[in-house]
Simulated assay, not measured.
Amino acid sequence: MTAATIDRRGLWAAAGSFVIWGLMPLYWHLLKNVPSLQIVMHRIVWSALLVVIGLCLTQGLQWLRTAMARPRVPWMLALSGLLIAFNWGLYIWAVNAGHVVETSLGYFINPLLNVLLGVLLLRERLTVAQWVSVAIAAAGVLWLTFNYGSFPWIALSLAASFGFYGFIRKLAVVDSIPGLAIESLYLFLPAVAALVWLESHGSGGFVGSWSWQTDALLVFGGVLTALPLIGFSYAVRRIPYSVVGFMQYLAPTLQLLIGVLVFGEIFDRDRAIGFVFIWIGLAIFAIDGVWRSRKLAPIVATES
């Protein structure tokens, strides 16, 4: 597939997904008066209802039977569901606690962590350029660790949880949307039970205490959870993965800009140095990926 034949709808779907993820800090900041754990539980409930109802209307229950009949898929999706719930919770708490810059660092680190997981757990091989990129990015992480002012545990936890989430979803033989639906179903009843308990004990605010605008934001948060994931799954089937890889960095770049320019978080010289190392590593990795994909394209075209 050449640049001229890239599906434009796939490009727009990918761009839209990454822009939504990148602008998420602005949305969750609107809910800063709601406890982070309750935001996560509402996010689980409303996204589950949206995705499951959508699948049932289009496919009945066949998607559930097909996925759950596959070996290892049920317990793998249960584990991936816990990982993504942890990731969501930490991310929302960090945004509303004033750590947007550090969350962006986590999602800059994540692609390179995925590479290491592939090497260590899937026995994938890296080129010399890829090893150099990983080493430079690791130097940036170490620099930030010792010069950030505090250990960047938020960034590393976000990168690790989403990295292992992606690793499990790579191994689980199930499509993206049914996989998201089943993960959500595992979390749905505990989330509903917790919300009902909080409401009945006066700790919740969805029924009566919060404004209708806050309630609406919580419900629409489910849409914002599912929509970019659906758009991403649509895009990766229609455009080269190297293009997706380039566009992936749109989200943490937007998060970083929001943290510094909108929320006024600190971005001093020491943090800039660490980020520059990571950006250089990402650039080397991305350029190497594009070069290799273009080199292989004529060979694939000839063989086909």
Rank of each mutant, 00 (worst) to 15 (best):
M1G: 08
A3M: 11
A4F: 13
T5A: 06
R9K: 11
G16S: 11
F18I: 05
V19K: 02
L26C: 07
Y27A: 04
W28T: 01
W28V: 04
H29N: 14
S36Y: 13
L37S: 07
I39C: 03
I44C: 08
V45Y: 01
W46T: 04
W46E: 05
V51S: 05
L55A: 10
G60Q: 13
Q62E: 12
W63L: 12
A67F: 09
A69L: 12
A69I: 06
V73I: 12
M76E: 01
L79S: 14
S80W: 05
L83Q: 02
I84M: 09
N87I: 08
A94W: 02
N96T: 15
F108L: 07
L113R: 05
V115K: 04
G118N: 11
L122G: 06
E124V: 04
R125Q: 14
V128S: 12
S133G: 15
V134L: 14
W143N: 06
F146E: 09
N147M: 13
G149P: 05
S157K: 07
L158P: 04
A159S: 14
G163E: 00
Y165I: 09
F167Q: 03
D175Q: 07
D175T: 03
Y186M: 04
F188V: 05
F188N: 02
L189T: 10
P190E: 02
S200E: 12
G204I: 00
F206N: 00
F206R: 00
W210Y: 15
Q213E: 10
L218A: 06
V219K: 01
F220E: 03
L224V: 09
Y234E: 03
Y241A: 15
G245H: 11
Q248A: 10
L256T: 01
G264W: 14
E265Q: 14
R271Q: 13
R271L: 13
G274L: 04
F277A: 04
G281D: 04
L282S: 06
A283R: 12
I287C: 15
I287V: 15
R294G: 10
R294Y: 06
K295D: 10
P298W: 07
P298L: 12
P298Y: 09
I299S: 13
V300N: 09
